[in-house]
């Protein structure tokens, strides 16, 4: 066991865990940030996607001892009031079915929009295909990313 100081959603968080604990389980079990989901544990589904210094990261594959000083953002910290353009677009387009994959989808999309504010459908697909949606909500996920990309952010994203 070891103590780690993490920067999560703008806050300093101290956790005492085994040093190989994947960030996913630190977030879920120790910080109770359960918006980040477990789907496969092997980097294949994207349900566990968070941002590490703004870049998308599969938290199931990232041991906590490799996080260091990086700033972690989870779905809970994507916007203050749940009104990131993607979160709004997700509601407007009525994307979720079971909803389980959706925070991972949104986090992947948020990183894409930060890098490429006006992505083409092709760019959207080429980025988002790493996130599985077992319910097959892909058409609306794609559309919602597009919708969000046409709107200026109302809240500054982290």
């Amino acid at each position: 066991m070891a103590v780690f100081n993490l920067h999560v959603n703008g806050k300093e968080q101290k956790v005492d865990v085994a040093e190989d604990t994947p960030l996913l389980w630190v977030l879920r079990d120790h910080l109770r940030l359960v918006g980040t989901k477990f789907g496969c544990g092997v980097g294949q589904c994207g349900a566990c996607t968070v941002h590490m210094d703004g870049a998308p990261l599969r938290s199931c594959l990232m041991p906590v001892n490799a996080v260091g000083n990086a700033k972690i953002t989870t779905i809970e910290g994507l916007s203050e009031k749940g009104d990131h353009p993607l979160q709004k677009a997700w509601d407007e387009v009525d994307v979720p079915q079971c909803g389980y994959c959706q925070s991972g989808q949104i986090m992947t999309a948020a990183a894409l929009l930060k890098r490429t504010p006006r992505p083409t459908m092709e760019e959207i697909q080429n980025t988002m295909h790493g996130n599985l949606c077992r319910c097959g909500a892909y058409h609306r996920i794609r559309e919602a990313v597009k919708v969000a990309s046409t709107k200026t952010p109302t809240t500054k994203t982290k």
Partner: peptide, 23 residues
């Protein structure tokens, strides 16, 4: 009518909704 899912806001903000989230 096309009525949006009543749970959308909770889903997109990562609220504990699922079994795995229960603590």
């Amino acid at each position: 009518k096309p009525i949006r899912n009543v749970e959308n806001q909770n889903i997109v903000t990562g609220k504990p909704l699922f079994g795995l989230d229960f603590y």
